[in-house]
């Protein structure tokens, strides 16, 4: 099933693959995401409250018991579902599907009912419980391409929307389509093991398309029928640690 807008042909549909065999849980992507997207660090107290605003988080699952213990890592970010449950429940259209397969969050439109967060099975939507507080030098390293979010609104991974824009602009300046590898979200750029891939899944020659159509690709909570744009390449053969 394709969502309504996909009856039209679109040049781009952005997607990401996460190679679970390659991920070693180093957390570089998390830091990169935080720096790129002006995500405030909330400090000890708020983190203990469970309000750590990580657009991209690494979930750790521990299997077995000592001494035979395995740790599995699952990088979790907004899955940019084709039929996203979060979108339809928003009373003010603050989140909707754009025609490049992205699940867009319109910060200025959001009133903060937080219904979207309740309907997201991946729990990847975050709420600004307080105004973001960037102190001292943190202010100087804010990304000018990304807006700061006020208290009381929802936010989430955008697949680094600003980088997608820039990539498309550059391509348009040179009068060409976006090549595979032109656009790299912060996490993909930073990942030391190359576990993350990003690209246009409508381009059948792109790496992401090939990986997403390989036998290893799975979607999280596939039974929910959300049709995520993020595919996980299942592993299980290689034991980390």
């Amino acid at each position: 099933m394709k969502s309504f807008n996909y009856k039209k042909h679109n040049d781009y549909k952005w997607a990401m693959t996460v190679d679970l065999d390659r991920c070693d849980g180093c957390g570089a992507c998390v830091v990169a995401c935080q720096a790129e997207n002006n995500i405030p660090s909330l400090g000890v107290e708020q983190t203990q409250e469970g309000r750590n605003m990580l657009w991209l988080r690494i979930e750790r699952y521990i299997e077995g018991s000592y001494p035979d213990v395995k740790v599995r890592f699952l990088p979790m970010m907004c899955q940019h579902c084709d039929t996203a449950p979060c979108e339809s429940v928003c009373p003010v259209y603050a989140t909707y599907q754009n025609n490049e397969g992205l699940n867009v969050q319109v910060y200025n439109r959001c009133v903060g009912t937080r219904f979207c967060g309740n309907n997201c099975p991946y729990s990847v939507r975050y709420f600004n419980w307080y105004d973001p507080d960037f102190e001292g030098k943190e202010k100087n390293q804010l990304n000018p391409d990304v807006s700061l979010r006020e208290k009381g609104i929802m936010e989430k991974c955008t697949f680094c929307m600003q980088r997608i824009r820039r990539g498309k602009d550059n391509a348009a300046d040179e009068g060409r389509e976006v090549h595979d590898g032109d656009i790299k979200p912060a996490c993909v750029q930073t990942c030391p093991t190359g576990a993350l891939e990003f690209g246009n899944i409508n381009d059948h020659h792109s790496r992401v398309s090939k990986l997403a159509h390989s036998g290893r690709a799975i979607s999280l909570f596939e039974e929910k029928g959300t049709h995520p744009s993020v595919k996980y390449l299942k592993g299980g053969t290689a034991d980390v640690f």
Binding site: M1, K2, S3, F4, N5, D82, T83, A84, P85, C86, E87, S88, V89, C90, Y93, T95, Y96, Q97, N99
Partner: peptide, 11 residues
């Protein structure tokens, strides 16, 4: 009028 795609629901 708005014709925004939300969760694949028809307009």
């Amino acid at each position: 009028i708005m014709n925004l795609d939300v969760g694949g629901k028809p307009p």
